[in-house]
Amino acid sequence: MSNTSKIYLRLLSVCLFCILTLPYLQKTFNLIELKPLKGDISLTEDTIFSLRGWFSGKYQEKKEKYLNESFGFRSTMVRLNNQIAFSFFNKAKANGVIIGRRTRFVLY
């Protein structure tokens, strides 16, 4: 493989790495203003580390739940999943949404 190719591949790997870190950067620096998800959502609060919590596994459980619910672009990911289900399979996955003959209805 030529040196130019290697440089391109290095750039490509840096790009892929940046894509992996984008949600973290979005969460920390709020790079793009995103619309929050609609509806009544109760989000898990971040947890404080303690050795007791760690050895009982409760710290990991709460932390994982918190990270799942708060990572950057989460709302976009949820919307994307719902949109795919609607566009390809005519299914409504969002809570409180049903599909009518010609349109979607949102139940409040």
Binding site: I19, M77, V78
Partner: peptide
């Protein structure tokens, strides 16, 4: 790489909502 990015986004999206 492009295919991987698409699959990564779809997978993360699925894990998030599933």
């Amino acid at each position: 790489s492009a295919l991987s990015i698409v699959l990564l986004i779809l997978s993360v999206s699925s894990i998030t909502a599933f």
